[in-house]
Structure formats: C-alpha cells, structure tokens
Amino acid sequence: MALPDRFRLDDRVVLLTGAGRGLGRAMALAFADAGAAVAGAARTPDQLEETAALVRGQGGRASIIPTDVTDSAAVQAMVDATLAELGRIDVLVNNAGGSAEGDGEPLEQLTDEQWQRGVNLNLTSQMLCARAVLPHMTERGSGVIINVASGFGLRGGRHNWMYVSSKAGVVNFTRSLAVSYGPDGVRTNCIAPGIFPHTEQALARWRGGKYIPVGRVGLAWEMGPLAVWLASDAAAGLNGETIAQDGGGLSAIGPTGWAPVVALEEAD
C-alpha cells in the first residue's frame, strides 16, 4: 500500500473512552477525519453528544455510549453495544482518566478509598476495557490498543500518588499487552501527553509554556495525528512502545533554557 494510505483508517471502528472533552474529543475528530467510525464513551452524555455532533459536522460517523469505565459490567455493555451497532472494533483507545481526590495531599492523609478510586479510574479502567475487547480482536487476528498515560507515568511528582502510580502501571500494562497479544495480531502502544491546558486559567498557570523546552504548551489537536498514526497500519512496527508528546520536557534536566558553556580542561 502506498504510504499516505497506510495512515488512513477508512472503514475502521474506533472505541474511544473519555471522548467527551479535551484530548479525547480531539482524537475523536482526528479518527473521523482519517475515515474511521468513532464510538465514544464517557460518563457525561451531554459532552459526548457535543463530540458526536462535531464529528458528524465534519462528515464523520459517531455513536455515543455513556459509560462508567471503572464498572466492569458497564464496560462489557459498552463493548457489546459497540459491536451491535458498528459490527466490529478495530481500535480501542483507553483515554479516560485523570487526577483523583487525594492526589496532591500528603500521603499520611490519603484514605484507602481515595487510593482505590484513583487507581480504578486510571489503571483498572484500562484493564477492564482491554479485557473486554481482546476476545473480539484475537478472534479476528487484528486490533490496535492505544493507552493514554502521562509524563507522570515515567517520572515522579510531589505528593502525586494515585496518578503517578496508575499511569506508570499503564506504561507497563502496555508492554505486557504487546508481548502477550502481539502474536495474535493485536498491537498495543501508549501515548504520554505532557502539558495540554484545556482552559485559559490552566494556560495561565503554565505561563503559556514558559517552562516547557519548546516554549509553548501542547494543543489538543496535536494528539490527533499521533493517535491516528498509532492506530493505523503505518505504525505496524510499533508494539509495546510509549511515546511522550511533551515539548521536550522528559528529555531535559535543569532550568529551562539552560545552555552552559564549559571549556575542556587541558592536561598539563
């Protein structure tokens, strides 16, 4: 297949969690633009409807499935409904997640319930969704899973407990899915987004990207092409990999813009 076509997703079905807003919505639009039908899941129906309307507005095909992805039975129902409506699932994007109550608090104050909720939201949810779609994908001998982690899945953060632990879990869950189901034709990769502010306040809090090496923040739409690439046949060589899209943050150390000049000491 000629190369531009390898990036296309025509006639593919993408099941995308956390599709109601932010990066999930941006990915939904990009998948539709690449030719895929998008089944969007999230807790809030109103926001899902908005995403679906935007997808349809650009000529795409979308269906919505309000789902609590931390609920095993609801996740199974989500997969069943997608298969019933769209006939197949080529791509699962585990995007739902976020910080939970207790993230940012000293560990001594964290309750068992807060820990469980945070880990359920970011990690258990991805396991539930992967487990529910895998029989379908392995039976067909093809499928793609894309897990969304975070730079905090690769580095620690001050008083950031459930978020860092569950996102690190996502990175390694990705690897084991890749090793276990790669031979069955299922590729699993992971995206670790950096700073993508969704509001003006968040943009201001990040000072417009002053402390990000490339000097700007991430734009939600930039997640689209990366997700489309990983979902497409153009990423056939990638499995088990986590790609950071973070403006160079993770590869840096020291103050932003630090550029020391030091002469090599001559031997005397």
């Binding site: 991430g218 990999e241 790609i243 590869s251």
Partner: peptide, 9 residues
C-alpha cells in the same frame, strides 16, 4: 511537540 524522544520501532 514531540522532541527529544526515542521511539522504539
């Protein structure tokens, strides 16, 4: 927005 990355193929 992707820079300084090592991507395994």
């Amino acid at each position: 927005f992707i820079t300084g990355e090592v991507i395994a193929v």
